[in-house]
Nucleic acid binder design. Structure first.
Lengths: 336, 336
DNA sequence: TTGTAAGCGTTATCAT
DNA sequence: ATGATAACGCTTACAA
């Protein structure tokens, strides 16, 4: 209730109050060895009485550690962040960081300004490590991070320059499972709405689709590109429908595009799944809500956020770590 | 390409190279007055040659400013963050912060552990200010922030203890517009699926609904509570349908719940909007994707993120600021 | 086990 | 305009 921001006690004051040296107090604070039981108690009491809380900035300066990690999200659309995908990644990352005393600083490297800001962040060592999400093939972020020399782990594999550390989802496997499902349904004129082929996700899901079709002794019936949002999925579906009017199934590389496809199919008077079966990828909320609900490939996004963070922590701890691929699984709903 | 993290030059080294005192170098760095043109040039050259970048931690220690602001999101479900809503807020906040050199640290105060972490953040002054989102009525965060004495602005009004600074959306007005629309459509047996009444959003939208209905000389035909997610909306719709089988319109306090309602209505064989008109609130992506697409109240979420951040910056700059209410507007689609 | 003292890299004060 | 010098608050050799 007192508005005056009373100056907070320093470690020196704690030490004085406890009648010990500052170094002793510091040792207690970081529960380091070499301090007698008596002194330890005295210091702890003083800390409690004074309500001392260590100044993280001072500590950071002394230890040369920022006490924070960055989550940088690249891409050209600021609204990329409105995608529930990132929310889940953030949620996963947070739950892991909660166990530590690292903060999470969030960076959208979407504008030119944003990019220089991230560069600043890295060059000034304002963070101890970086998680990089959603990089495109030619993304300059990858280089910036490499140059910074900071520990970095990738969420999703970048297209080029295989990084040492990344966590990814089994995109190809998921796409294969989705397509296999379509085949098992007896469909044979299967088209795909794939994502940008300058991303690993885009490519891998495309590859999985191709492999599955090939293994069945068939060939893709058609393919059109989208860029992972609903509108592009609708456009792609329209194109496919005119090019291959008799298609009987579509594998969309993500749920948003699948939703767009659903919309177009509906307008075109095709019934789903009777006339054409549709399966998506991601298992975002939209999959449950769309009509008909989407059969889709679930990917553990929150787990991705967790693992990518865990990996970074391991790196910071100097441990040896290996890349990680998270499994996906098919969720059957109404659309296929 | 050299993996060795070469030690970065300090301001002292810059000063030495430029042949000036450290204080002069510091002045140049912060382009302060009282430094001759010649020296200024020399220092700037030295900075460039050495590739000097100031150490933000040291600066923070000296200036007693963290150089970061926190966005804390409260609530009990970590997945609250998967809601596209927050993504948009974050996007808005980021675009504003890009113009400054403040970082954004993100905090989910969802678990007990998370709460203490936020408390740490505040007590240790690891940030210069705070944006608080989505507080429930009894949320302990509000108290923690107040006690911390840090500048704080609320996104959405908390239920109790009117804060000095907040940015909110015109929830009551939006709800009124939505309900007016339903009335204009000739509906008279209008029910509402409202949000939690221990939040201001929940209450305000409910109030707007009530006011509109009353102004038309009617009374609410029914009401059921949800908690802003799809499932709860479905459950509420089911309850309402059995209690008031002849209802002809529903105002859902957000799009997720409206989507749930749509699902149930569809299953119950009611056609939308012919039999029952539905309008939601938020204008999230789901509104466009659902079937039929949702007539809903658009709220400028990204603008909310921007304004809340701007307000905090103004506060940090010592400016006087007043609360802000952002307008909403009805978006007509298929469901009503 | 304990304490002294030297950093960590800036900014800020105060003579000059 | 300029440059010592003292903060800022903590960690960490090193010595005792």
């Amino acid at each position: 209730m007192d508005g005056t921001a009373r100056r907070r006690p320093t470690l020196d004051e704690v030490a004085e109050r406890a009648g010990v040296s500052r170094s002793a107090a510091s040792r207690v604070l970081n529960n380091a060895p070499h301090v007698s039981r008596a002194k330890r108690d005295a210091v702890q009491r003083a800390i409690a009485e004074l309500g001392f809380v260590p100044n993280p900035t001072a500590r950071a300066l002394a230890t040369q550690q920022a006490g924070a990690v960055a989550l940088v999200v690249s891409g050209d659309d600021p609204m990329i962040f409105a995608d529930p995908f990132f929310g889940q990644v953030v949620a996963g990352a947070t739950t892991v960081l909660e166990e530590t005393d690292l903060h999470l600083v969030l960076c959208l490297a979407t504008s030119a300004r944003g990019q220089t800001r991230v560069q600043q962040l890295l060059r000034t060592r304002a963070v101890d490590g970086v998680v990089l999400m959603a990089l495109r093939g030619d993304d300059p972020m990858a280089r910036l991070v490499r140059e910074s020399g900071l520990p970095a782990v990738f969420g999703g594999r970048p297209l080029e320059g295989e990084p040492s550390w990344y966590v990814d989802v089994d995109n190809a496997g998921g796409a294969r499972a989705a397509t296999d499902h379509l085949l098992a349904l007896g469909r044979s004129r299967i088209v795909t709405i794939h994502g940008p082929l300058d991303t690993d996700v885009g490519r891998s899901r495309m590859r999985g689709f191709r492999e599955s079709v090939a293994l069945a002794g068939l060939t893709p019936y058609g393919a059109a590109a989208g860029d992972f949002n609903e509108r592009s999925g609708a456009a792609a579906m329209e194109a496919l429908l005119t090019r291959h009017p008799d298609l009987d199934a579509v594998f969309a590389a993500n749920d948003n595009m699948a939703a767009g496809a659903l919309r177009v199919l509906h307008r075109a008077g095709r019934s789903v799944p009777a006339d054409v079966a549709v399966v998506g990828f991601d298992d975002l909320p939209v999959a449950e809500v769309s009509h008909p609900s989407l059969t889709t490939v679930h990917q553990p996004i929150q787990a991705l956020g967790r693992e990518v963070t865990r990996m970074l922590l391991a790196l910071l701890a100097g441990e040896r770590v290996d890349p990680l691929i998270l499994p996906t699984r098919l969720i059957r709903r109404e659309s296929a």
